[in-house]
Design a protein around this nucleic acid. Structure first.
Lengths: 110, 110
DNA sequence: ACGATATACCTCGCCTGTCAAGGTATCTCA
DNA sequence: TGAGATACCTTGACAGGCGAGGTATATCGT
């Protein structure tokens, strides 16, 4: 497990957008990529993942389309929008700031 | 504002415990210390702060007692328990791990 | 004398994101 | 044929953050 829900909370959207910057992808693949990148230490729960997709699409940060595989299970692909790229940059900045702040606050002063 | 609720979520308890490691303190002072340490960029909302105190006390990580000031408003002081110190160490480790994980995941791969 | 501001505490109820649990359908391989 | 992987989805419970509201005391300027 390692990372609990509340520690990751608020990063889910950023993490998903990050996976879509380079190329379009679909739910299952995105989660596999996350699992790989973290060497098995973290994966999004499916319910969380799909909730996030809905949220991001409503917000106009991603758009979706069905893949045209003619074999295997159908896939819904997601594409990051220009607004999504802006939002991602913003979120990364916020994370950098938050990281420094948290770092400062969990440090025990001598 | 800078840090939104969901980014800080899950760190509230750790932050409060960190302020109590060195010495006992009370709500208002803890929040002021946080404000100082972050140069005004962050403070816990009062409702969040007091909710956290209740939670931490229920969990046995802090204990509380009324100060004996004979002037000014009454103060409820909080003291970290041995279990609280252990929990704090654990929480800091989890944060270190989470930080590395998030860092890896919000990075855009070339 | 009086209002504003700071100190200091507290609770209620809403909102939002996570996730356990359940479901569907297709393909591969033993 | 049946287990396991791929791939999607929804519902409802739960928990933490926080806006809004409340109480009481002390200080300081006018």
């Amino acid at each position: 497990m390692s990372i609990t829900g509340d520690l990751i909370r608020g990063h889910t959207d950023t993490i998903i957008l990050a996976q879509l910057i380079k190329e379009d992808s679909y739910g299952y693949q995105i989660n596999k990529a996350i699992l790989d990148k973290t060497e098995g230490r973290y994966e999004l729960k499916e319910a969380t993942l799909y909730t996030a997709f809905r949220r991001l699409e409503s917000a106009g940060l991603i758009s979706s389309y069905w893949g045209d595989e003619n074999t295997g299970a159908r896939r819904r692909y997601y594409r990051i929008t220009p607004a999504g790229r802006n939002a991602f940059t913003q979120m990364k900045n916020e994370w950098e700031e938050a990281k420094l702040t948290i770092e400062k606050l969990v440090e025990v002063q001598e």
